[in-house]
Design a protein around this nucleic acid. Structure first.
Lengths: 361, 361
DNA sequence: TATAATAATGGTATCGGTACCATAACCACC
DNA sequence: GGTGGTTATGGTACCGATACCATTATTATA
């Protein structure tokens, strides 16, 4: 149906391989031949067939990015970082979303392996090694994003969840809060555990007893995300501050608090992990531990491209990105004299909008 | 490197074609042979190569969806509708985002044609025929989403922008508003024009003079979207109501009004096209002309799959989906006695959350 | 029993490109 | 004039799967 390289060759009166040389700017082609071939290409509306090329070449120049929640600006920003680096190196990107569902994740994995993508950037639905092993069994490079996979030998790029949580909760303590609830994500995911760990360490350093009943696990996503906030308020003593383990949990918590008639930050302070894009700014705007999402995507892609380039005998690497504490309104002001900004917090700034969200396939 | 169908065949002691029959459940294979082959497949961790298959088949079973703004819940909901129908028919989806940038759009178009996707779902960056013609020149089916392309013979699925705008503005008129500004999108896009047309018709039917200076064109996206709202307020007489041509324009307008110290809806009513997901609910929550985004994705994909199935000599079809008027707080209450709900408006309801946003590649 | 249909399997060509090797013209240099 | 390098072009095989046709064994029907 559509013309092939042979049709072009016939029309230009040359051999197929010569057309190939023109298309790829490889080898020697005389100027006259080149222009004859180019004319034939234009006349026939010839479009090279990537399938055939990839089959012969044994490389597709396609990367796969698998994320857990495409509606979250955190992940769209990561995706933008991945896309920009991939495109700069001539790779295109297939973006897949799993909704934290392992079955969906495995289905995509199979489909992408069959498509022979050159590499994977994977945010695993759970912190287990199976998906990584599946990919590695096919000798395809993987980089894990955002989450630790203790049992697997694999490159990882993630944020300092423990440290960020620690600093954020320490900041709340410095403001004078003594009853702080933690609203975390699913306990099957390392980030949810790490953020609780940072929270616990901050409390311990302040000499406060660990309060198991003040820690709530849940999903990172929409449906169930404000119930925990409601439950938290029924605890005695009622928490004066909430630490949410991601931006969506915080949005849910804010609604729950509004419905309960509790004003933020006057009656309850609210802080969270992950930033919120400027266009989604709400009142009061959140104090956050902002992950460097765009950079995470960039660094992960760079690691992946390195693995693709070399014979690749290096040991697995783990890159832990720092987290930026951004103080805005939702944390309120001092309750006791102290030094809340001890840890070098940053002032409000729109990290997201520098990289308007854009994806690719 | 990775095992081929020949490796499997050798290990199972059969011919490659027999392995192919096992994989595809085609032709005759005895139970014993089948299990020998399956054992070999499992042992070698064989993964079929889609590239080779597609090359031979001349079909990839991949569809491409090109949208203009992946951060807008409208488009992620459309994408979910597309994905669900595509997957149900055994197709996978490549999602591309153009940021309303024609150069980016054309680059994706070329890349996707080279990848030999079986069909396109295209939300064009501008309402011109070129991209559609480019695709059709390769004999690849296309369905245009959301926007009219007057010069092209192509299937289109879009919403009744003119009618929705008309009903929304008529509702504002019924509430007693007489000075209504329209904040629209880029004048190169049919939806922006259609929504202004509906606005104008509503004013005309109410016997009000057309007020050119009350119509503002701009971009559908983030950076410039609240300047128009600021300009609108400086008009004399100051508008008592704003009609925003999409959800993001309305979010921008809301911020501009807040900054100007104008309360919504008490001092200015604000309504918009497109719904806002429940998780993004803000106070006051918008009165909207909600597009049936999920359905738009579904119907468009069904049209595309029909074209893929048959020899395809049918005339181009245009499907215009109705728009649902959803009355919430941002439109305020009656200013004069009238019957604001004349047109059968719907009460608040979460259209988006029935289809949590999920994408695919 | 002869003939035909069904079940089970395989050989070879092909999809649309590119790798590899071969060929030939031309020029430079010793 | 012979050797060697650069330029320009082409022939053939092959990437990994499947279409098509062929072959044989087995069972059903006349």
């Amino acid at each position: 149906m559509s013309p092939t390289i042979r049709d072009v060759a016939r029309k230009a009166g040359v051999a197929p391989i010569t057309v190939s040389r023109v298309i790829n700017n490889s080898g020697y082609v005389s100027p006259e031949t080149r222009s004859r071939v180019e004319a034939a290409i234009a006349e026939l509306h010839y479009v090279p067939n990537t399938l055939a090329r990839s089959l012969r070449f044994k490389k597709t120049r396609v990367l796969a990015l698998i994320v857990t929640d495409i509606t979250n600006p955190f992940w769209t920003t990561v995706a933008r970082g991945v896309e920009d680096v991939a495109n700069a190196h001539g790779f295109s990107l297939i973006l897949c979303n799993t909704d934290e569902d392992e079955a969906k994740q495995d289905a995509y994995l199979q489909a992408l392996l069959q498509k022979r993508v050159d590499g994977f950037l994977l945010a695993p639905a759970r912190s287990v090694a199976d998906p990584v092993r599946t990919i590695q069994a096919q000798n395809v490079p993987v980089v894990v994003l955002d989450r630790r996979i203790p049992e697997a030998a694999v490159d990882v790029v993630r944020s300092d969840s423990e440290g960020g949580a620690h600093r954020l909760v320490t900041y709340l303590l410095a403001l004078g809060h003594r009853h702080i609830a933690a609203l975390s994500g699913p306990p099957t995911v390392s980030t949810a555990l790490d953020r609780v760990a940072g929270y616990r360490r901050a409390l311990a350093e302040a000499g406060l007893p660990p309060a198991a009943e003040m820690v709530f696990y849940g999903r990172y996503d929409i449906p169930s995300r404000y119930h925990n906030a409601q439950r938290a308020q029924k605890r005695t003593p009622r928490p004066t501050a909430l630490f949410a383990a991601n931006n969506f949990i915080a949005l849910g918590a804010l609604r729950a608090l509004e419905e309960a008639g509790l004003r933020v930050p006057d009656e309850v302070a609210l802080v969270c992990f992950d930033d919120i894009p400027l266009w989604l700014q709400i009142t009061p705007f959140f104090t956050t531990a902002a992950q460097r999402a765009y950079q995470m995507g960039q660094r992960a892609t760079e690691l992946l491209l390195e693995r693709l380039a070399g014979p690749d005998m290096r040991a697995p690497r783990e890159i832990v990105l720092p987290v930026d504490i951004v103080v805005r309104q939702s944390s309120g002001s001092l309750r006791t004299p102290a030094s809340p900004l001890a840890d070098g917090a940053r002032q409000p700034e729109g990290q997201w909008d520098q990289h308007p969200h854009r994806l690719i396939g």
